[in-house]
């Protein structure tokens, strides 16, 4: 990319112009917030129910993942932003998950009890 200023850009940029936009269309932030809220309430209610851990834990983890996707996808704009940011975010995340599994196995976390 050339590093010209906005003034340069409007005055001598061939074929380049600046014009007011009608209005920005933003993602449905409030709708996402409502969904996050609903999932959070569902999570808490689900955790309070006297259900077998084998059923409770996976559902809780799924709801957690849904909330995380909502925050990352819409609020952090990964859904609409450049793919490079998605790769930058998902790489360390996958390493983190691997780290948790490896350390957990190493220190006998699975042997103790997880589910």
């Amino acid at each position: 990319m050339s590093a010209g200023t906005e003034g340069e850009h409007t005055s001598r940029g061939a074929g380049v112009s600046r014009q007011p936009a009608p209005h920005h269309k933003h993602p449905p932030y409030v709708t996402v917030a409502v969904w996050l809220l609903i999932v959070t309430i569902a999570e808490v209610i689900w955790a309070l129910l006297p259900i077998n851990d084998l059923i409770m834990v996976p559902i809780l983890l799924i709801m957690m993942a849904l909330k995380a996707l909502g925050v990352v996808g819409w609020y952090m704009h990964l859904k609409s932003d450049s793919r490079v940011f998605t790769y930058l975010a998902s790489g360390p995340f996958l390493i983190s998950v691997g780290l948790i599994i490896v350390l957990f196995t190493l220190f006998g976390g699975f042997a103790e009890r997880f589910f």
Binding site: M1, S2, T5, E8, H9, G15, V16
Partner: peptide, 8 residues
């Protein structure tokens, strides 16, 4: 040719 720029 598409040009790009950096704003001030």
């Amino acid at each position: 040719m598409a040009q790009t720029f950096t704003p001030r």
